[in-house]
Design a protein around this nucleic acid. Structure first.
Lengths: 121, 121, 121, 121
DNA sequence: GTGGTCTAGACCACG
DNA sequence: GTGGTCTAGACCACC
């Protein structure tokens, strides 16, 4: 659990949580079966409300990235490396399509995108 | 004025307006001195509230992309081609830095970003 | 809005809400574009918390049965009669598969199921 | 004892146990007088808590489907074939009434229910 | 006015 | 101990 929360960000806290944890799962930092901290503990550690943590956890479960055993806790789902790569790419492509639309609205060619992206990456 | 508004989008309408017009200005579609339609007219044409249009116009003026002549209307600012290119890149790079952070959070290399970006572009 | 809430039921309130409204939508009682009552109003009318109503609404939106326009309200989605029938059957079949498993666990044949079902229907 | 437990199911484990065993008794798979495994053994075999097994056994005893002889164990109750059939139907009809209400809430006719049920059975 | 988010605290079922 | 649900009330952005 290595999470950074920004209260000033325009992005909702639960979404920050969701994005960071899903990224950690899909790039293999959190192994299958890994037990996430109890929501109450996570809430106090992160300094947010229980409900906020729960909302993020729910979204993770909805995408089958974690599973819940009531009374036991929440655990990282069992995904094969192939599945993880697929899910990761799906997630990124979904976001990237929106980003690409933005770049295109400014008339950028793919080559220009590459050139600028190399600068900031 | 070629604008597409989505009421159901999670993105605020005024921001959709702002993004699309600023993009059109910075890629040269709207020439310097071009007179934007009066706020009331734009509002009825787009089917949005006057307040919403005003908010978008204010944001455009704040970034010196348009200027207002009281009683006459709003006009696209005078920007040299160099300035326009500079402003366009600034705007894109600002967004791109955020996008890049997102991609990096999933552990993508720049090459992987290029590969996926080529798919959606 | 014709909703019956049971506080004593073992079924969560938000799920009762979801089930009843989704049923009303999918059997055509609530027409496309129909504006649901504001969540605060619905909450007071039903005597439940705003959050409870919101949770039900969120689930409806997740299944594209309603859509939200921030600042305006929530509206029944536009679904063709064919789509509605399809969605209705999907929803029922999902539940029915579980019910069928239960009946099968008692060794019932399909004919016995029909016979008993006719009694209670 | 042929039981399948799902930890991730929303249905409580004790209830899964109860449902499966009661079904086996009422369809005659477990004969009258058959000795259920000791709670501790059942618990370890199924990989669940003793408390959980006990709760299921208690529910079975409450419905007179099994009886306990202190120090000896739990045994399947003596039920005549007629009684078993009656009890089975009672149990199924109770559930079926709920299921029927659900189908009816979607406006299904009994014929539509039969048609769909045939698909999944 | 609307929905979107968040808080702090409570009670319950399950194991 | 765990998660699941619910409450009452607050603040914000958008329109």
């Amino acid at each position: 659990m290595n999470i950074a929360i920004s209260n000033t960000s325009e992005k909702p806290i639960y979404q920050q949580l969701f994005e960071q944890i899903s990224a950690q799962i899909l790039k293999g930092e959190l192994e299958s079966g890994y037990g996430l901290p109890p929501i109450r503990q996570a809430a106090t550690e992160l300094g947010v409300s229980i409900i906020t943590v729960k909302k993020a956890w729910e979204e993770l479960e909805r995408l089958d990235l974690i599973y819940t055993i009531t009374g036991k806790g929440c655990f990282v789902a069992d995904l094969s490396p192939d599945e993880m790569l697929q899910r990761r790419n799906d997630m990124i492509l979904q976001r990237m399509a929106i980003d690409a639309d933005y770049y295109k609205s400014f008339g950028l060619t793919i080559e220009e995108v590459f050139e600028l992206m190399r600068k900031v990456y």
